[in-house]
Amino acid sequence: MDFSNKLLKWYGSNARDLPWRNTSNPYFIWISEVILQQTRVNQGIPYYYRFIEEFPTVQALADAPIDKLMKVWQGLGYYSRARNLKEGAIQIVNEFHGQIPNTFDELLKIKGIGPYSAAAIASFAFGRVVPAVDGNVYRILARVFGVFTPIDSSKGKKEFFELAKELISKKEPGRFNQAIIDFGALQCTPKSPLCIDCPFNEYCYAYQNNLISSLPVKGIKKPPQNRFFYYFMIRYGNFTFVRRRSENDIWNSLYEFPLWEHNKQFNFDEIGQKIKGLSFLKDTEPCIRYISEPVKHVLSHRIIWATFIILKIEKANYSLKADYVMIPIEELSTYPFPRLIDGYLAAEPTAKYFINRYM
């Protein structure tokens, strides 16, 4: 079976017209690859245009204020991608004279660029013969060639990479990588693949042996962890309080309201009692105006149960002023928040009331 030629022939009739395919600019390709790591193509396209408009060069990204960067990224999730982009841009400016490296090995030295992104940039922008192996590629190769090694194991990753190296077109490596990505997105999909019209159906191990749903093989995932967040939307005159998250945790560099995290969920009466012991609310004479029902927010390895408590205070204590930034409420929309908070502010009528008038 001539896998490469069959794939490229299929691609000639089915290629998607995507904006980052109309350029050989390695910076633009890098940005597109990072955006697409955890984002659907249709969702990622407007972010791609917005990002390269705001930060058109490596230098512009390296110089970008972190708040502006996170605001542009807001809504895409997996915010470490944005922070790594900036750190990578600074590294390229400082260590590579502002020029993105043109080899796979050199690209791997850049912060946030892993094997897949390095291969994509090297092959798309510089024509390097190196396979870009992502979830689509694992799925296609496992099905067509009957590979049962778990794709999330170190052995599996090495085995699939070596197989892809054997198959990749030596004349058109970039086009091959684009083709196999599209083939996984359009033809050999995770569910309900189009096997009847597949150019490999005569040779496909999974199709011939009725194992489509069994391949690729994945290891057992741990169940997601539940976390319980209690956010305090405090109205102090026409001001409220926020802080930038800086811990090595979710949503680093994004803003949030004063947060109390506990290992359990409390009812309304229990929350009212617990408030009295929070350091940032001591001696503030808080008046509870609203307590939301828990809002469920699902992340890859966690489930956040967020309760929003709207308070009004007449005075702010030292802890509140020292640990949080006091801002005019009407400026909330200018700050980068996690999607959980941003969505709540935009959609919840009580939150809009909090923003627009006194309660």
Score class of each variant (00 low, 15 high):
residue 216 P to W: 07
residue 187 Q to Y: 15
residue 204 C to Q: 00
residue 132 A to L: 13
residue 200 F to G: 03
residue 210 N to D: 15
residue 146 G to A: 04
residue 217 V to E: 01
residue 211 L to I: 09
residue 135 G to E: 12
residue 220 I to H: 11
residue 126 F to A: 04
residue 167 L to V: 00
residue 206 A to K: 10
residue 153 S to I: 11
residue 172 E to W: 14
residue 135 G to R: 12
residue 183 F to V: 05
residue 138 Y to C: 01
residue 264 K to T: 09
residue 252 N to H: 07
residue 145 F to L: 04
residue 214 S to Y: 10
residue 130 V to P: 00
residue 157 K to H: 05
residue 215 L to H: 02
residue 197 D to M: 15
residue 195 C to N: 08
residue 176 F to N: 00
residue 263 N to D: 09
residue 237 G to L: 02
residue 219 G to P: 00
residue 211 L to D: 06
residue 155 K to H: 06
residue 244 R to T: 03
residue 183 F to L: 07
residue 210 N to L: 05
residue 126 F to T: 08
residue 183 F to Y: 07
residue 143 R to D: 00
residue 179 A to E: 08
residue 249 D to A: 12
residue 162 E to P: 09
residue 148 F to N: 05
residue 197 D to V: 13
residue 169 S to L: 00
residue 253 S to K: 01
residue 217 V to W: 05
residue 244 R to P: 15
residue 209 N to S: 03
residue 201 N to V: 15
residue 196 I to S: 15
residue 201 N to W: 09
residue 226 N to A: 14
residue 252 N to F: 13
residue 156 G to C: 10
residue 260 W to F: 08
residue 209 N to L: 06
residue 142 A to F: 03
residue 259 L to T: 01
residue 262 H to M: 15
residue 202 E to V: 03
residue 178 Q to K: 06
residue 127 G to D: 03
residue 250 I to E: 06
residue 131 P to A: 00
residue 154 S to I: 06
residue 252 N to M: 03
residue 196 I to C: 09
residue 218 K to Y: 12
residue 169 S to E: 02
residue 227 R to S: 11
residue 235 R to D: 07
residue 171 K to G: 04
residue 253 S to A: 09
residue 202 E to S: 13
residue 227 R to H: 04
residue 152 D to C: 10
residue 265 Q to A: 04
residue 146 G to S: 04
residue 249 D to H: 14
residue 259 L to K: 06
